[in-house]
Design a binder for these strands. Structure first.
Lengths: 108, 108
DNA sequence: CGGATAGTTCGATAGTTATCGAACTATGGA
DNA sequence: TCCATAGTTCGATAACTATCGAACTATCCG
């Protein structure tokens, strides 16, 4: 993974409305949710949500699938995994005994 | 964890120079590194690096420890763990069988 | 066809961010 | 004490971001 791609993905996540969207889609899983339901549930106006969803899709963090006149958004799970791996790459010189217990489950 | 804190931490990571700093400190582990060495290694001017280090410290992602006339920066591992947990909270309705293999190691 | 619903695009605006050089403070060594 | 080194602060500036309402496109249904 390129650092610029990671920055794009982190930028996409570093905004309250988008982080709400992301965590909502983490919660609902592969089912996903359409834009209108997200707009209602998160109380974000349609144009603003549309803007934010585009950011998340452009960052390849979400899948967008057209269903009739709705668009179903869902988490791109592999992308999230790659991002996390990139953030913790070469953690602790590969020596798990140096890691705290919190980090161990993700890096060592 | 509050969403505003997560946004602050993601904002801190969502910048190329700061992400370089972060990943460097992930790599070196608890040893940490002082600002001057980071400035040299990453080729970031001192004022600019100082600005970015402050951002990372303010976001509670780094520890800063004064050592003589240097300051040693190191990763705040627990904070990183909390952030990751927050991002993947309630992933996949707690049903690992719905998770892709990539996500499994971090969420389910 | 005509109306309603789902989303997007546009233009304007206010706020935030990254960067730089110059000047500053603080510590340590000769 | 004096000098060099380590790091921060300041002010200016250019670039980017989030938000809104209004207008738009596209799809579905009766």
């Amino acid at each position: 993974m390129e650092i610029t791609e990671a920055v794009e993905q982190l930028t996409a996540l570093a905004q309250e409305s988008r982080l709400h969207v992301f965590r909502t889609l983490v919660r609902v899983g592969q089912e996903g949710m359409c834009a209108g339901d997200l707009s209602r549930e998160l109380e974000i106006s349609k144009p603003t949500l549309s803007f934010h969803l585009k950011e998340l899709v452009n960052a390849h963090l979400l899948n967008a699938e057209k269903q009739g006149r709705s668009i179903k958004y869902s988490l791109k799970v592999e992308a999230v995994g790659s991002l996390f791996d990139f953030l913790l790459q070469d953690c602790c010189q590969g020596r798990p005994e140096l890691c705290s217990s919190v980090a161990q489950k993700t890096c060592c």
